[in-house]
Design a protein around this nucleic acid. Structure first.
Lengths: 344, 344
DNA sequence: TGAAAAATCGTAAACGTTTCTGGAACCCGC
DNA sequence: GCGGGTTCCAGAAACGTTTACGATTTTTCA
């Protein structure tokens, strides 16, 4: 005897009534509903996911797709954990569960996503690490499944997205350094075609232009967005002729500053002294010496916004989040440290 | 018209036959099977997860349960990402999918697990961050669902587990420092009742005893297992009377060494000079100066072992992994750096 | 008081698979 | 040419739930 059927038998009512009582449907008397809920709680009854999903066509699950490769891991991983926590707290209000869909480094992300969707695994999806041109966006839009992207893309399917305000970081970071007298300011960009690279470089060029400073492509430093990448950039800087080196640097990635600091010390260009550095806040960056001047935002809040913006386009939940499709830049606050001083 | 039904209609055969052909069941002619597979591929058909799960009673999903709270996050998160990657590569061989089940910091882990299980979400589970007494273990065992624990526990349900060789780290780390002349050696233990704390302290005492050194409880430093905790320990050390301070320290956690180094510099007890430090390898620790002497293991391999050991107790897959229930300590290799030198 | 309306509940049909059962068609050896 | 085996496939039942539809009772109102 199965879950709801046994419950119905115990209560001496039909399974239909039990189901309606549990799901808060209207045509059930208050007394009956009370008895059902009580018995369900006592029996520890939880509706079977498969049966429910089959019938309703929805699973009550939202998937957050991410790649597990280590070498190319875009943002840090602490990053995701904190964002998750924010997303969860919103979903919990609606009995939605968040699961991380882990695409192994050996599998093609597009194929993985297709499988997940076809299987009917989740009602909605969150994708991250968006590329400049991202097939996943077109695909999800064509299948008509609600999704939100953490990160902009040129691929536009009228979908909602949220991204960090990279323009703002470039603007504030670069002008701050210019204000301190710097003229050669380096900036990081990823090696692959992640969209944030393009956004960053564009914004960077605009700020320079506004200040009447010539753009020098050799001041764009491409590397993997991880500790090793930061380390590599430091060495790349040291390898340049002295008068062509950047005297200041803006690093919009969370975790690279560790390797960057280390590399700078190794090559005798100590941050905050030989080169001014502005980075991103993170639990790890917190302990760098000299203290990192950095951009900070609440990742938990980012997660909350992400979740609410997704719910806003899910028919079943939209009524509670009446703000249509959001496209938003999360702004970051500059926290002053000691790393952005330097003799020029 | 639904997935398999449409396919059957296109092919002009019964859905039963199509299903059998797709699932590699025997009583299908080679020619028919070929046609079915071809048509399925052309149509991009993927069986609906809900229907299949309902009928088969299994989902093809393995859940890795983890908490998303930031403050108490046991091991680092890079840790998990790498382990995941290993787990995935094994599961992929069997069309199993790994999903991370994210228990928010606001939700009770036991309740969360119960919900996941009752819902029939996953065929098997991996749990981590095991407590000394862990209800989850008894619960999963009582529900008869296959699971493996990443981390030992005193709660024993005859279940498989894999853990890091904390005894080995204590043994090798502490005796190495003793060999270098140290007599007062500090060690980290978590604040909560994570089992590894007990294991560590036990092993620590044994090594000391063997070398005839008295155990001093004030040399056990309890803190949160994150950067901040490491930082706190450094300051706690500085606050001790000089002659009672540890001259060497063994830190078995991945990420704490960052805060620890920083704190030590702050209080004027530079690692590798005023105090000898042995830690754990990690992408971040890689860039510490002086170079951290550390314990290293392949997290990807750990993930692979984890996955294989889980499959070994899953009836449907056990035949390929005929090694019963494993209980294994993953050993770590010591990588020499410069941090474990110190004037005593 | 009777009929219409509302409230409450039971029945059964879905949802998309897999798998059990049975029944053609075919082959073999006598 | 006939029983006994294979080989292959069609049909239908089952998995656990939700929900459309009616049926029954109760309430309401003229």
């Amino acid at each position: 005897m199965t879950g709801i059927r046994r419950l119905a038998q115990q209560l001496n009512m039909s399974i239909g009534t039990v189901s309606r009582a549990l799901n808060g449907k209207p045509d059930v008397s208050a007394e009956t509903r009370r008895r059902v809920l009580e018995a369900a709680a006592a029996a520890g009854y939880v509706p079977n996911q498969a049966g429910r999903a089959l019938r309703k066509g929805s699973t009550g699950v939202v998937g957050f797709m991410m790649q597990t490769g280590h070498e190319i891991t875009g943002e840090g991983d602490v990053f995701f954990m904190s964002v998750f926590d924010g997303v969860q707290t919103v979903f919990a209000r609606h009995q939605l569960d968040l699961v991380a869909l882990l695409c192994s480094s050996e599998e093609d992300p597009d194929a993985y996503l297709q499988r997940v969707v076809a299987r009917g695994f989740a009602d909605a999806l969150i994708i991250s690490a968006t590329k400049r041109q991202d097939h996943r966006i077109d695909f999800l839009a064509s299948r008509n499944i609600p999704f939100i992207a953490l990160g902009r893309s040129e691929t536009d399917a009228g979908h909602p997205w949220i991204d960090l305000d990279f323009e703002g970081m470039a603007e504030v970071g670069v002008s701050r350094l210019i204000g301190k007298g710097h003229r050669r300011i380096g900036i990081f960009a990823p090696l692959d075609d992640a969209n944030l690279g393009f956004v960053l470089v564009d914004a960077y060029r605009k700020v320079l232009a506004r200040h009447g400073i010539d753009f020098d492509p050799s001041l764009i430093f491409r590397a993997n967005p991880n500790e090793r990448g930061g380390h590599a950039i430091a060495h790349a800087i040291a390898a340049m002729p002295e008068d062509r080196r950047p005297t200041g640097f803006v690093l919009t990635n969370e975790i690279m500053s560790l390797g960057f600091y280390n590399g700078l010390f190794e090559v005798g260009l100590p941050p905050g002294e030989a080169i001014a550095v502005i980075g991103r806040d993170s639990p790890q960056a917190h302990f760098l010496v000299p203290k990192l001047t950095c951009f900070r935002l609440s990742l938990r809040d980012l997660g909350i916004t992400l979740a609410e913006s997704l719910l806003a386009i899910m028919p079943a939940y939209a009524e509670h989040y009446p703000f249509g499709t959001t496209r938003k830049l999360a702004s970051l606050e500059l926290v002053e440290g000691a790393s952005d001083c330097a003799r020029i």
